[in-house]
């Protein structure tokens, strides 16, 4: 009984410490999540889709792209490779968190499962106050962020059908989002070799292979180029900020 109480207060204290860190994400995820839900609704999917996808995928970029993939013809290999490429940065979040997640016991699988960009950057950088259980702190950060995204997407999916204004052009939200992330990457680098490789290779493959089948060759070419030009690229990356 006593032990149980202690455990509960540890969780409570950690929640109190974690919540303020997630407030900016609360605003962002509700907005983006709702837009995503409305976008799915406008693309002809019931709210069940964004709801389930926010639970099992929980990765904004990929969930937006998945709408496009659900609207195209069934292409399992491309879907899997595309997911891995879009989410590849998580490999490095994982490497960065190898130590931090140690000793978190039963919470560890969920900490890894739910490690989106935002949860990673909070858990990686936040100074956890002394006396607050770090496992619980990181668990709350992760769970709260997923809750915000879940609520936003589901609400968007539900409210989408109530929207009376013309939603034509709403799909541009995905383009705008990627332009912003790309720009952020661009501003972080001194030289822009990899950014230019990404744009040039994709454009070339799009012209050669066409809109429906350019992704696989693009991904293969990007990996080849990064391997072949590793020396100069690696040199150009020195001095750039580390990826967040």
């Amino acid at each position: 009984m006593k032990h149980h109480k202690k455990k509960r207060s540890a969780a409570g204290a950690a929640l109190k410490a974690a919540f303020p860190h997630t407030i900016p994400i609360l605003a962002g995820f509700l907005f983006l999540g709702m837009t995503y839900g409305i976008y799915m609704n406008a693309s002809g999917f019931s709210f069940v889709y964004p709801m389930i996808m926010s639970l099992v995928i929980f990765g904004g970029s990929l969930e937006f792209v998945a709408v496009q993939m659900l609207l195209s013809t069934f292409a399992p290999l491309q879907t899997l490779l595309m997911s891995v490429m879009i989410q590849a940065r998580h490999l490095f979040y994982g490497i960065a968190m190898l130590d931090k997640f140690k000793g978190t016991g039963a919470k560890k699988p969920y900490l890894i499962f739910g490690m989106c960009d935002e949860s990673f950057s909070i858990n990686c950088s936040a100074e956890i106050p002394e006396g607050v259980d770090k496992g619980w702190f990181m668990l709350w950060v992760t769970a709260l962020n997923q809750l915000y995204w879940f609520c936003g997407s589901t609400l968007g999916g539900l409210l989408g059908s109530l929207i009376t204004f013309n939603t034509e052009g709403l799909d541009f939200v995905m383009t705008a989002m990627f332009v912003v992330i790309f720009l952020e990457q661009w501003l972080k680098e001194r030289r822009h070799y990899t950014a230019l490789i990404g744009v040039a290779v994709s454009t070339a493959c799009l012209l050669i292979f066409g809109a429906d089948s350019f992704l696989l060759p693009t991904m293969a070419c990007i990996l080849c180029m990064l391997t072949v030009f590793r020396k100069p690229i690696e040199k150009s990356l020195e001095g750039s900020d580390d990826p967040k």
């Binding site: 490429m85 940065r89 490999l91 990627f178 744009v199 690229i233 990356l237």
Partner: peptide, 24 residues
């Protein structure tokens, strides 16, 4: 090579995604 890809991939992938959004 893994940590190199970690630094080099994101800009290229998001460049690809911008083009992907504009493919049509």
């Amino acid at each position: 090579f893994v940590s190199y890809l970690g630094k080099a991939l994101p800009a290229a992938v998001f460049g690809m995604l911008v083009v992907y959004c504009l493919k049509n």
